[in-house]
Structure formats: structure tokens, C-alpha cells
Design a binder for these strands. Structure first.
Lengths: 238, 238
DNA sequence: GCAATAGTGTCTTTCAGACAATATTAG
DNA sequence: CTAATATTGTCTGAAAGACACTATTGC
């Protein structure tokens, strides 16, 4: 038996039911040396009173034509929810989360995005109905709204398998010392990094131009001053 | 200035415009030693007469409640379009493709999926309005419908960066010889593999149980018979 | 014996991880 | 001089790539 491949007809395309497409943000920052996720407390059903990821709905009709791209939506919703300019932040897609029933109201396909922000940026977020929860802390995950625990688990897996450099660079204040960046790597990778081996890895980042010397030095207390560095301009992933 | 994070309200969720969510399949198979992609010729606008990837629309309302998950949709549409049982095939998500204007009719967010099929399965697909096009062949990509050239480019990038083992195992007939699998690796990686170094890599797959000896031997023409092997049962990615 | 493919071992390079000593500042 | 942090170099093991020979079959 052979099969002939068929296209979706235009009439079928017009008639068929459509889901909502949303964006869920896993916004991470360093809090006292560990990775934390930004959560906010829901004030209406469903899941009223539980913690949830910041999110928003993809714009399909505005801006004159078909709305905005998914990456644009992620940045717009991030800026709307946090007030932070997205240009200096690291964005990485976590894929689609489309389980049936993940939102009991209607069918929602959500695109997960991982966003890394610096300590200064993180400090600007209002903590009224929000909190930064350590990602290693298992307790709150059990009671998160929707499938947000699954999205955070995917974020953890993505963080663990992709190159840590872009994310770590987005988590440190600019400019930074080698020790600062090493701390970010340790937060991202979840394990201590040997200072000497890390310096070798850092040197490779210098050699390929990912980080550049700022020329200044910085010293804290009574110790030898450290050289300070900056991420090269093109470190954000669109 | 501080910002308070807000949830999407239920009324906004009901009112807002919704996109179509679709699935585009990059179905790959080995054709005379090289990777090929299954294309079909469109018979209606838009892009009438041009080549396109097999695709379908996510089911949101049927099956009683909210329809099907994205992975279920990918397998359903694959089986509908090819007649091949999806259980023995390798599925990997390529992410979302949601550029504004990618479909001129209406806003469509498409989930790309990479599917690897064996030569026997590939041979079952009718070649009436379809073709297997070598993935290294640049010419047809220029004239593909929608953003399907971009999806195939993403598939190539994904193939080049992820571990080739699962995909290669899905591309060979079962059972297979070491030389068969090496040919699949060469097609996937796009470069020749040294037989001796590959045997060492293969031995690691045996050691961790990814492939198991079938016990038989196979010989072609006048040469020494080769041992034949099988992929372990749990090689498909859902 | 000859043709053809299957299967095995060694050397080198590269990268990651374990490990200790020296350098520069404030006090 | 002491405290504190910054910076640098060596050894070792794992894995990948380059490379040549032996083994088993049909004819």
C-alpha cells in the first residue's frame, strides 16, 4: 500500500480550532552564590495563591499584520513583567510545552524561555508578590501552577547540557573579575570550579574575543587587585 | 521604579486572537549513502507547484477534551502522511518556527520535527507527488514553500550538534552490521569515519547496551561474514 | 592463491581534572 | 610582616584521530 502526501487545505486552515500560544519565562539570577528563579504569586484562578512563572500571550493580530515573532514576544513580555531592558540579557528557548490540560481553562501551547539577568537587574524587580527561589530548593516546585515545575526542570536540564558561558556572562555585573565569572559558572554548573583550571578556560574566552580586558583593576579589602573584564558586545542570543 | 508582575486574566485569555499551531516534518532517510529529505509538491496556493515539507495541524478540540499533545500530533501526522508506524522511528524536536508572515494566509506557529526512517520504510512512501532530495543538494532549498528551507537548515544544524547515535540507528535496516551503522554515521555527520576508530566507538555502544548482538552473521559476495547487531528496544525518543 | 570485506592495536594530540607555589595589595 | 586574594604551571587519565596488519570467506 502506498500513501500520497497531502497538504492542509486553506478551508481546513480557516475552520480548525486554535490554541492560545503563550510564553513562560524562567528568569534566573544569582542570589548569594546560587541560581534563583523569579516566581510570582497568582491572585486569581486557576491556581489562585500558588507560585507561577511570569508569562504572557503571543500577540497575533496587533502591529498591523500577524503580530510578533515568538522571540519578540519573549522579550516584550520580559520587559513588561520586569521593567528590565532585554538587550543585555541572555535568552534561550526551552521549547514548547503543550500537554493537554496544562491549563484547565483552554488549550494553551506555551513556549518556555530561559533568561539570565545580572544582580543589579534582579534587584530592580519588586518583591511585593514575587520572590527569588533558589533553583536547588525542591520544596516550592511541588506546588507551582500549571506545568511550571516541568518547565523549570527543563530549564535545569538545558542549563546543565548547553555551554555555560553565555548564561554565566549574563549573570555577572559588568565589568567583572575572573573570580566573579567563576562564581557564576559555579552557580550555573552547580559544582565548585578549580580556580587554576578555570583560569585556563577563561584565557580561551579571552583568546577568541568573547571577553575583553577593561583595563581597570579592582581590589576588595587588603588583597591583590584583580583585573576586570567585559563581555564582548555580541553575547546575547536572539 | 518598580514593577509588579501580573498574570494573564481569564477574560483576556478568552478574547485574544489565536494562531494556528502546525507540525512540519523533516523526514530523513539514507539514499545511496547520503541523507535525503522527503518533500512533496504542493497542489494548491500558496506556493502552488513548489516543494514543501509534509505537515499537518495540531488537533485542539477533538478526542473529547483539549485534543492531543505536540508529540502525539507529530506522530499522528507522520503516520497519516507516510503510512509508516512511528514507533520504530527517531523523533527529535527542532523547536518552534513562528516568523510573522511565514504563511501568508493566517498566523501559523509550526513545530519542526526531525524524523529518521529506515531504507525499507522510506521505500514504502509513494513517489507520485513526492521526492527524496539529498540534504547536501542546495538547489531545491531556494524554492521551498513557506520557511521550510529554514526548518531544514535548523535540522542540519541539530543533526550536526547532537549525538548522532539515535538518528543513525533509526536510519539502518535491523539487524545491521558495523559497516552499515558506520555508513549511517557517515551520512549523518557528512564525513568519512575511520573503520578502526569507529569500531572502538561501536564497542562502547555494545558495552552500555545500546546495541546488542543478534547472534547471526551476514556475508556478501566472496568475503568474510560480518556479525549482525540490533538496536536495544528503548532507542526511540518520544 | 587471490579478491574482498571483517576485525584488531598503537601512537599522538587534545582536553579536563587534580594539585601548590608565587605575586600584589592593605593594614 | 601578616592577611587576603590573584595569578601562574605540571602531571595524569580519557577520548579522538591517524595509521597497518591479520582473519575469514568465495572463487
Amino acid at each position: 500500500m502506498t500513501i500520497t502526501i497531502q497538504s492542509v487545505s486553506s478551508t481546513e486552515l480557516e475552520r480548525c480550532a486554535r490554541p492560545i500560544v503563550a510564553v513562560d519565562l524562567v528568569i534566573v539570577a544569582m542570589q548569594s552564590g546560587a541560581l534563583s528563579v523569579l516566581l510570582h504569586r497568582r491572585t486569581e484562578p486557576p491556581f489562585e495563591g500558588t507560585w507561577a512563572l511570569p508569562s504572557g500571550v503571543l500577540d497575533v493580530a496587533n502591529q498591523g499584520w500577524q503580530g510578533e515573532s515568538i522571540a519578540e514576544a519573549a522579550r516584550r513580555i520580559f520587559e513588561y513583567q520586569t521593567g528590565i531592558a532585554s538587550a543585555s540579557c541572555h535568552f534561550a528557548s526551552l521549547g514548547a510545552f503543550g500537554r493537554v490540560g496544562r491549563d484547565p481553562r483552554t488549550r494553551v501551547i506555551s513556549m518556555g524561555w530561559l533568561v539570565g539577568v545580572s544582580p543589579e537587574q534582579a534587584a530592580r524587580v519588586d518583591t511585593d508578590l514575587t520572590c527569588w527561589s533558589a533553583i536547588a530548593n525542591e520544596v516550592p516546585w511541588l506546588r507551582l501552577a500549571f506545568d511550571h515545575a516541568e518547565i523549570i526542570a527543563t530549564a535545569e536540564a538545558t542549563i546543565g547540557t548547553t555551554d555555560a558561558t553565555s548564561l554565566a556572562l549574563s549573570l555577572v555585573s559588568q565589568p567583572f573579575t575572573v573570580a566573579d565569572l567563576r562564581g557564576a559558572y559555579e552557580a550555573v554548573l552547580g559544582r565548585p570550579q578549580d580556580a587554576r583550571n578555570f583560569r585556563r578556560k577563561f584565557q580561551r574566552l579571552v583568546d577568541i574575543g568573547t571577553v575583553v580586558a577593561s583595563g581597570d583593576k579592582r581590589h576588595q579589602g587588603k588583597s591583590r587587585p584583580a583585573n576586570v573584564w567585559r563581555a564582548a558586545a555580541d553575547q546575547t542570543n536572539p
